[in-house]
Protein backbone atom coordinates (compact mmCIF):
# COMPACT_ATOMS: atom_id res chain seq x y z
CA UNK A 1 0.00 0.00 0.00
CA UNK A 2 2.80 2.40 0.75
CA UNK A 3 4.72 3.68 -2.22
CA UNK A 4 7.59 6.20 -2.18
CA UNK A 5 6.55 9.77 -2.97
CA UNK A 6 9.91 11.38 -2.34
CA UNK A 7 13.16 9.47 -2.54
CA UNK A 8 16.23 11.30 -1.21
CA UNK A 9 19.61 9.94 -2.33
CA UNK A 10 22.94 11.12 -0.88
CA UNK A 11 21.72 14.69 -0.41
CA UNK A 12 24.59 17.07 0.35
CA UNK A 13 24.35 20.84 0.83
CA UNK A 14 27.32 23.07 1.52
CA UNK A 15 27.39 26.80 2.09
CA UNK A 16 31.01 27.52 1.27
CA UNK A 17 33.04 25.12 3.42
CA UNK A 18 30.19 24.66 5.85
CA UNK A 19 28.50 21.28 5.33
CA UNK A 20 24.86 21.74 6.30
CA UNK A 21 23.45 18.49 4.94
CA UNK A 22 25.83 15.57 4.99
CA UNK A 23 24.83 12.69 2.70
CA UNK A 24 21.18 12.12 3.60
CA UNK A 25 19.27 9.23 2.02
CA UNK A 26 15.67 8.74 3.09
CA UNK A 27 12.29 7.77 1.74
CA UNK A 28 8.98 9.58 2.25
CA UNK A 29 5.95 7.46 1.40
CA UNK A 30 2.51 8.52 0.31
CA UNK A 31 0.40 9.45 3.34
CA UNK A 32 3.37 9.75 5.69
CA UNK A 33 3.30 12.46 8.32
CA UNK A 34 6.93 13.10 9.17
CA UNK A 35 7.98 15.50 11.88
CA UNK A 36 11.59 16.66 11.75
CA UNK A 37 12.98 17.79 15.11
CA UNK A 38 16.41 18.89 16.25
CA UNK A 39 18.40 21.80 17.61
CA UNK A 40 18.63 25.06 15.72
CA UNK A 41 21.38 24.98 13.11
CA UNK A 42 21.06 21.24 12.65
CA UNK A 43 19.96 21.62 9.03
CA UNK A 44 16.20 21.00 9.42
CA UNK A 45 15.00 23.97 7.40
CA UNK A 46 17.70 23.52 4.77
CA UNK A 47 16.63 19.89 4.43
CA UNK A 48 12.96 20.82 4.01
CA UNK A 49 13.71 23.58 1.53
CA UNK A 50 15.86 21.18 -0.49
CA UNK A 51 12.83 18.99 -1.12
CA UNK A 52 11.23 21.54 -3.47
CA UNK A 53 14.60 22.95 -4.50
CA UNK A 54 14.15 26.38 -2.93
CA UNK A 55 17.65 25.44 -1.80
CA UNK A 56 19.57 23.80 -4.61
CA UNK A 57 21.52 20.77 -3.33
CA UNK A 58 25.28 20.70 -3.78
CA UNK A 59 25.00 17.05 -4.79
CA UNK A 60 22.64 14.13 -4.53
CA UNK A 61 19.18 13.43 -5.87
CA UNK A 62 15.63 14.37 -4.91
CA UNK A 63 13.25 12.02 -6.68
CA UNK A 64 9.66 13.24 -6.58
CA UNK A 65 7.04 10.96 -8.08
CA UNK A 66 9.80 9.19 -9.99
CA UNK A 67 11.55 12.28 -11.40
CA UNK A 68 14.90 13.54 -10.17
CA UNK A 69 14.43 17.26 -9.52
CA UNK A 70 18.12 18.13 -9.22
CA UNK A 71 19.26 19.65 -12.51
CA UNK A 72 15.76 20.31 -13.85
CA UNK A 73 15.20 23.65 -15.58
CA UNK A 74 13.38 26.39 -13.65
CA UNK A 75 10.47 25.95 -16.00
CA UNK A 76 10.21 22.22 -15.30
CA UNK A 77 10.54 22.93 -11.58
CA UNK A 78 7.54 25.28 -11.70
CA UNK A 79 5.42 22.29 -12.69
CA UNK A 80 6.79 20.24 -9.78
CA UNK A 81 6.56 22.92 -7.12
CA UNK A 82 2.83 23.41 -7.61
CA UNK A 83 2.41 19.82 -6.38
CA UNK A 84 4.51 20.51 -3.25
CA UNK A 85 2.69 22.99 -1.02
CA UNK A 86 4.88 24.93 1.36
CA UNK A 87 4.07 26.83 4.54
CA UNK A 88 6.62 29.27 5.96
CA UNK A 89 7.50 30.44 9.44
CA UNK A 90 6.82 34.07 8.40
CA UNK A 91 3.58 33.15 6.53
CA UNK A 92 4.70 35.12 3.45
CA UNK A 93 1.19 36.15 2.49
CA UNK A 94 1.05 38.73 -0.29
CA UNK A 95 0.25 41.92 1.62
CA UNK A 96 -1.16 43.78 -1.38
CA UNK A 97 -3.90 41.21 -1.98
CA UNK A 98 -7.00 40.23 -0.05
CA UNK A 99 -7.14 36.82 1.61
CA UNK A 100 -9.28 35.56 -1.26
CA UNK A 101 -6.89 36.96 -3.89
CA UNK A 102 -3.93 35.35 -2.09
CA UNK A 103 -5.57 31.95 -2.38
CA UNK A 104 -6.88 32.41 -5.94
CA UNK A 105 -3.65 33.73 -7.45
CA UNK A 106 -1.82 30.48 -8.18
CA UNK A 107 -4.88 28.42 -9.28
CA UNK A 108 -5.73 31.15 -11.78
CA UNK A 109 -2.20 31.97 -12.97
CA UNK A 110 -0.67 28.50 -12.94
CA UNK A 111 -3.63 26.19 -13.48
CA UNK A 112 -5.64 28.68 -15.54
CA UNK A 113 -8.74 28.06 -13.43
CA UNK A 114 -11.50 30.55 -14.15
CA UNK A 115 -12.38 33.12 -11.54
CA UNK A 116 -15.62 31.47 -10.45
CA UNK A 117 -14.04 28.07 -9.91
CA UNK A 118 -11.05 29.54 -8.09
CA UNK A 119 -13.30 31.62 -5.86
CA UNK A 120 -15.50 28.65 -4.99
CA UNK A 121 -12.46 26.53 -4.16
CA UNK A 122 -10.89 29.34 -2.10
CA UNK A 123 -14.07 29.81 -0.06
CA UNK A 124 -14.27 26.09 0.58
CA UNK A 125 -10.68 26.08 1.85
CA UNK A 126 -11.29 29.16 4.00
CA UNK A 127 -14.20 27.33 5.60
CA UNK A 128 -11.90 24.36 6.18
CA UNK A 129 -9.44 26.55 8.12
CA UNK A 130 -12.27 28.43 9.85
CA UNK A 131 -11.81 31.83 8.19
CA UNK A 132 -14.72 32.12 5.75
CA UNK A 133 -15.54 35.58 7.13
CA UNK A 134 -12.06 36.93 6.32
CA UNK A 135 -12.19 36.49 2.53
CA UNK A 136 -12.07 40.20 1.77
CA UNK A 137 -9.67 41.20 4.54
CA UNK A 138 -6.09 42.21 3.84
CA UNK A 139 -3.36 40.22 5.60
CA UNK A 140 -2.27 43.16 7.73
CA UNK A 141 -5.61 43.09 9.55
CA UNK A 142 -5.24 39.41 10.57
CA UNK A 143 -3.60 37.86 13.61
CA UNK A 144 -0.56 35.63 13.17
CA UNK A 145 -2.61 32.47 13.65
CA UNK A 146 -5.15 33.61 11.08
CA UNK A 147 -2.40 34.51 8.61
CA UNK A 148 -0.83 31.07 8.94
CA UNK A 149 -4.19 29.37 8.39
CA UNK A 150 -4.66 31.46 5.23
CA UNK A 151 -1.17 30.44 4.12
CA UNK A 152 -2.12 26.79 4.59
CA UNK A 153 -5.33 27.30 2.60
CA UNK A 154 -3.32 29.04 -0.11
CA UNK A 155 -0.94 26.09 -0.43
CA UNK A 156 -3.85 23.62 -0.42
CA UNK A 157 -5.56 25.50 -3.24
CA UNK A 158 -3.04 23.99 -5.67
CA UNK A 159 -4.15 20.49 -4.53
CA UNK A 160 -0.59 19.43 -3.73
CA UNK A 161 0.57 15.85 -3.29
CA UNK A 162 2.71 16.79 -0.30
CA UNK A 163 2.74 19.68 2.17
CA UNK A 164 6.00 21.02 3.58
CA UNK A 165 5.82 23.01 6.83
CA UNK A 166 8.85 25.10 7.82
CA UNK A 167 8.42 25.87 11.54
CA UNK A 168 4.81 26.95 10.99
CA UNK A 169 4.16 27.98 14.60
CA UNK A 170 7.53 29.45 15.59
CA UNK A 171 6.57 33.06 14.80
CA UNK A 172 3.21 32.84 16.60
CA UNK A 173 2.12 34.09 19.99
CA UNK A 174 1.57 31.06 22.25
CA UNK A 175 -2.21 31.42 22.34
CA UNK A 176 -2.39 31.11 18.56
CA UNK A 177 -0.30 27.98 18.15
CA UNK A 178 -3.23 25.70 18.91
CA UNK A 179 -5.49 26.93 16.11
CA UNK A 180 -2.77 26.31 13.52
CA UNK A 181 -1.84 22.89 14.88
CA UNK A 182 -5.52 21.92 14.84
CA UNK A 183 -5.72 22.68 11.11
CA UNK A 184 -2.55 20.66 10.51
CA UNK A 185 -3.86 17.76 12.55
CA UNK A 186 -7.08 17.69 10.52
CA UNK A 187 -5.00 17.73 7.39
CA UNK A 188 -2.92 14.79 8.63
CA UNK A 189 -6.09 12.82 9.38
CA UNK A 190 -7.35 13.44 5.87
CA UNK A 191 -4.39 11.45 4.55
CA UNK A 192 -2.20 14.29 3.24
CA UNK A 193 1.50 13.51 3.00
CA UNK A 194 3.26 16.02 5.25
CA UNK A 195 6.81 16.91 6.20
CA UNK A 196 6.90 19.23 9.19
CA UNK A 197 9.87 20.97 10.78
CA UNK A 198 8.75 22.06 14.24
CA UNK A 199 9.62 22.47 17.89
CA UNK A 200 6.11 21.43 18.98
CA UNK A 201 6.89 18.08 20.61
CA UNK A 202 3.27 17.57 21.69
CA UNK A 203 2.18 17.84 18.07
CA UNK A 204 4.92 15.45 16.98
CA UNK A 205 3.79 12.90 19.54
CA UNK A 206 0.13 13.08 18.51
CA UNK A 207 0.16 13.56 14.78
CA UNK A 208 3.38 12.08 13.41
CA UNK A 209 3.79 8.65 11.86
CA UNK A 210 7.53 9.10 12.09
CA UNK A 211 9.80 11.46 13.96
CA UNK A 212 13.21 12.26 12.46
CA UNK A 213 15.83 13.72 14.74
CA UNK A 214 18.33 15.82 12.82
CA UNK A 215 21.73 16.75 14.14
CA UNK A 216 24.85 18.09 12.40
CA UNK A 217 23.49 17.60 8.90
CA UNK A 218 22.31 14.00 9.21
CA UNK A 219 19.18 12.18 10.36
CA UNK A 220 20.69 10.93 13.60
CA UNK A 221 17.73 8.82 14.65
CA UNK A 222 14.26 8.09 13.40
CA UNK A 223 11.28 6.08 14.56
CA UNK A 224 7.70 6.27 15.71
CA UNK A 225 6.93 9.03 18.21
CA UNK A 226 6.66 6.31 20.82
CA UNK A 227 10.20 5.07 20.12
CA UNK A 228 11.79 8.51 19.93
CA UNK A 229 10.12 10.11 22.90
CA UNK A 230 10.10 7.18 25.33
CA UNK A 231 13.10 5.11 24.28
CA UNK A 232 15.63 7.16 22.26
CA UNK A 233 18.73 5.12 21.42
CA UNK A 234 21.26 7.79 20.50
CA UNK A 235 22.95 9.80 23.21
CA UNK A 236 22.47 13.09 21.31
CA UNK A 237 18.75 12.39 20.88
CA UNK A 238 18.43 11.86 24.61
CA UNK A 239 20.41 15.00 25.28
CA UNK A 240 18.22 17.09 22.95
CA UNK A 241 14.95 15.70 24.29
CA UNK A 242 15.94 16.19 27.91
CA UNK A 243 16.65 19.87 27.15
CA UNK A 244 13.46 20.46 25.17
CA UNK A 245 11.08 18.52 27.39
CA UNK A 246 12.51 20.08 30.56
CA UNK A 247 11.11 23.44 29.51
Amino acid sequence: MTKPLIQINHLVKKFGDNVVLNDISETINQGDVIVVIGASGGGKSTFLRSLNLLNVPTSGEIEFEGTNLVGLSEKALDGVREKMGMVFQQFNLFPNMTVLANIKLAPMKVKNNDDAAATAKAKELLAQVGLEDKADAYPASLSGGQMQRVAIARALAMEPDVMLFDEPTSALDPEMVGEVLKVMQDLAKSGMTMVIVTHEMGFAREAADQVWFMDQGVIAEKGTPEQIFTAPKEARTKDFLSKVLAQ
Partner: peptide, 30 residues
Protein backbone atom coordinates in the same frame (compact mmCIF):
# COMPACT_ATOMS: atom_id res chain seq x y z
CA UNK B 1 10.49 43.20 -1.07
CA UNK B 2 11.39 40.36 1.35
CA UNK B 3 12.78 37.24 -0.31
CA UNK B 4 9.98 35.26 1.38
CA UNK B 5 7.52 36.75 -1.10
CA UNK B 6 9.46 35.26 -3.99
CA UNK B 7 9.79 31.93 -2.21
CA UNK B 8 6.08 31.79 -1.47
CA UNK B 9 5.20 32.58 -5.07
CA UNK B 10 7.68 30.08 -6.50
CA UNK B 11 6.58 27.34 -4.12
CA UNK B 12 3.04 27.84 -5.43
CA UNK B 13 4.32 27.05 -8.91
CA UNK B 14 4.42 30.61 -10.28
CA UNK B 15 7.15 31.10 -12.88
CA UNK B 16 9.90 33.70 -12.47
CA UNK B 17 8.01 36.06 -14.74
CA UNK B 18 4.64 35.54 -13.01
CA UNK B 19 6.28 36.03 -9.64
CA UNK B 20 7.71 39.33 -10.82
CA UNK B 21 4.59 40.68 -12.50
CA UNK B 22 1.92 39.40 -10.08
CA UNK B 23 3.67 39.50 -6.73
CA UNK B 24 6.88 41.54 -6.62
CA UNK B 25 6.28 44.48 -8.97
CA UNK B 26 2.86 45.48 -7.61
CA UNK B 27 4.33 45.66 -4.11
CA UNK B 28 7.49 47.36 -5.34
CA UNK B 29 5.49 50.04 -7.14
CA UNK B 30 3.63 50.77 -3.93
Amino acid sequence: IPVGQTEAARSLGLSTRQTMTSVILPQAVK
